[in-house]
């Protein structure tokens, strides 16, 4: 079955993003397809390259990136929600004349159309709140 996960929780702030990771692993192990992970609202912070949690805490960013590499996941961060909260790609930082970019490798910025498209293309949508 094709799943899309929608994530609203910021990492290291509420459990939602970590729960979504556990759920994503379980569905992939069961042989299902993860069509897209859409990061929205405060969930966009999962795509920050600058997260530096202490070594004895789980590294959510690293775990998403590993999973992305292993399964060629489509990790999409909503561009409008990201701009508001200060998460920018190189090209967005240049365009908006901001001093730095911080979108992590393995993630891409895209519009809300990607959520609508994933809704149409997936068998199941599961939302993880903040």
């Amino acid at each position: 079955m094709k799943f899309t996960l929608v994530i609203y929780g910021a990492p290291h702030a509420s459990e939602g993003a970590a729960t979504a990771l556990r759920f994503a692993r379980a569905l992939l192990e069961a042989g299902h397809t993860l069509y897209r992970v859409f990061f929205y609202a405060d969930g966009i912070h999962n795509g920050s390259a600058l997260a530096a949690p202490p070594q004895d805490e789980q590294d959510l960013l690293g775990q998403w990136q590993q999973l992305q590499q292993a399964h060629q996941l489509d990790l999409v961060v909503c561009i409008a929600a990201a701009q508001r909260r200060g998460l920018l790609s190189e090209s967005e930082a240049t365009r908006l004349e901001k001093p730095a970019a911080n979108l992590a490798e393995g993630f891409e910025l895209a519009g809300l159309g990607q959520l609508a498209e994933a809704t149409a293309a997936s068998d199941r949508i599961v939302t993880f709140g903040g």
Partner: peptide
């Protein structure tokens, strides 16, 4: 239940509604 069973429940039901507030 464990996460695997949770995924199975998601495949057996539709739609899926999250209540997080």
């Amino acid at each position: 239940i464990d996460e695997t069973r949770w995924v199975t429940l998601c495949t057996e039901h539709n739609p899926i509604v999250s209540w997080f507030k």
